[in-house]
Nucleic acid binder design. Structure first.
Lengths: 198, 198
DNA sequence: CTTTTCACATACCACCGGTATGTTAATGAG
DNA sequence: CTCATTAACATACCGGTGGTATGTGAAAAG
C-alpha cells in the first residue's frame, strides 16, 4: 500500500531540481539578481511548474533557506554530539558553526539575503528552529550544571548567535582577518570569560 | 565669492527631498517593496531628477544608508563622550547603540536591507566608517590602558558588533524579550566578563 | 546679447514576477 | 475495461518596474 506512484515521483523530482538549481543560483548571484527564467531553465522546467510548487519567488527562497538551515543545524549538532563534556559540546558546536557558515554559498542565503527577503522575524523563526535552538539548549544545560553562572539564557543566546553570524561573514570576507584562527581564538576567549563571572 | 547660486540651491533641495522621502519609504516598506514611482511622487519630482542625482535604485539606497550610519555614529559618539572614564565610554556607547538602533526605521535600512542590497562587504565598509570604528577605538584604548587583557582587538570588535546588531533586532522584534533591560544586562555581563580574563 | 551648460521633465523600452488558460497522462470509480 | 477526474505541468500573456534616451527651459558663462 502507499506505493510511491509515478505521479508523486515526478513531483518530488522536479521539486528537488527546482530547489537544487535555485539554491545554486541564489548563492552565486544573490536573491535579487537571479530571475525566475534562469531558475526554470537550469531546472529544465517552466514557470508553470515553479508556481505549481511554490507560491512566489520569496516562497521558493524560503524553502531553500529552510533546507540550508536544516543542513547547518545537522552538521553543528553532529560536531557537538561527538563530545561527552557539555562545555566541549558548546565549543565544538561553535567551531563547527563557523566552519559551516564560512562557505560562501551558505552565507549569502542564510545570513545576508535571508533576513531581507523573509523579514527578520520570519528568518529568526527559522534560525531558532535549527541552529539557535541547539545553542540555547547547550547554554541552558551549562547554567543548570553550574559551569556557567546563573543568568537568563535567552538574551545570551542571541548575543552569541549574532556574534557568530558576524564572525562567519568576516571570516569569508575578502577584507577578512589575516589569520582565521585569531577569530576563533577571540570567540573562545569570550566563551571562557563567561565561565568566570557572576 | 562662491555664493550658493540659485542653481546649486535647487539641486541640494531636490537631493535632500529625494533622500528624505526614500529613507522614509525604505524604512517603512523595505527596499524591495518600494518603487521609484512612489519615491519621486513623494519627493515631488520625476524619475529624471532621481537618475540625475543617483546612478541606480541601489545607489540611492546606499546614500540613504550612509546618512543613517552617520547619524547613528554621531549619537553613539555623543553618548560616549559624555563620560570621562574609558570603560564608562564603552558601556555608554553600547547602550546608546542599542537605544538608537532599536528604532524600527533605522533597523530595517541599516541592519536588514543594508547587507542584502549593497552586499556584505560594502555594507561593512560603511559600518566600519561610522559606528564600528568607535567601538574598535574604545576597545583598543581599553587594552592599551590595561583595563582589558592584551589581545587582538579586531576580531573582538566584530564579535561585539555582531552581538549588538542582533540584540538590537531582537529588542525591537514582536517576539522580543519580555524585559528589555534583561538584554542590556546580558550584554553588560558579557563586557564585564572580558575584563577579568586573560 | 549669445552660447553653453545644468537640472531636471517626458517618452519610451526591455524585462520580470505573477496569472490565466490549455494540455497530457496518471489515477480512481463503476 | 471504460471513462471522468485531476494532478502536474506547459504556453501565452499582462501590468508594472528599473533603467535609458531625448527634449527643454532657465541659469550661468563669456
Amino acid at each position: 500500500m502507499n506505493q510511491p506512484g509515478v505521479r508523486a515521483q515526478q513531483r518530488e523530482q522536479t521539486r528537488r531540481a527546482l530547489l537544487r538549481e535555485s539554491r545554486q543560483l541564489f548563492a552565486a548571484q544573490g536573491y535579487g539578481a537571479v530571475g525566475l527564467a534562469q531558475i526554470v531553465e537550469a531546472a529544465g522546467v517552466t514557470k508553470g511548474a515553479l508556481y505549481h510548487h511554490f507560491d512566489s519567488k520569496a516562497d521558493l527562497f524560503g524553502a531553500v533557506l529552510e533546507e540550508v538551515q536544516r543542513e547547518v543545524g545537522r552538521r553543528v549538532a553532529a560536531a557537538a554530539e561527538a563530545h561527552a563534556d557539555r562545555w566541549d559540546q558548546l565549543t565544538a558546536g561553535c567551531r563547527a558553526f563557523l566552519a559551516v557558515t564560512a562557505e560562501p554559498d551558505i552565507q549569502r542565503i542564510m545570513l545576508v539575503d535571508g533576513p531581507a527577503v523573509l523579514g527578520w522575524s520570519a528568518w529568526r523563526a527559522l534560525d531558532e528552529a535549527s541552529s539557535a535552538q541547539h545553542l540555547g539548549d547547550a547554554l541552558a544545560a551549562l547554567v543548570a550544571e553550574g559551569t556557567l553562572p546563573p543568568q537568563p539564557v535567552e538574551p545570551l543566546t542571541h548575543l552569541l548567535s549574532g556574534a557568530m553570524n558576524e564572525a562567519a561573514l568576516w571570516l569569508a570576507s575578502p577584507s577578512g582577518p589575516a589569520d582565521p584562527a585569531e577569530t576563533w581564538a577571540a570567540l573562545e576567549r569570550l566563551l571562557r570569560a563567561l565561565r568566570h563571572t557572576g
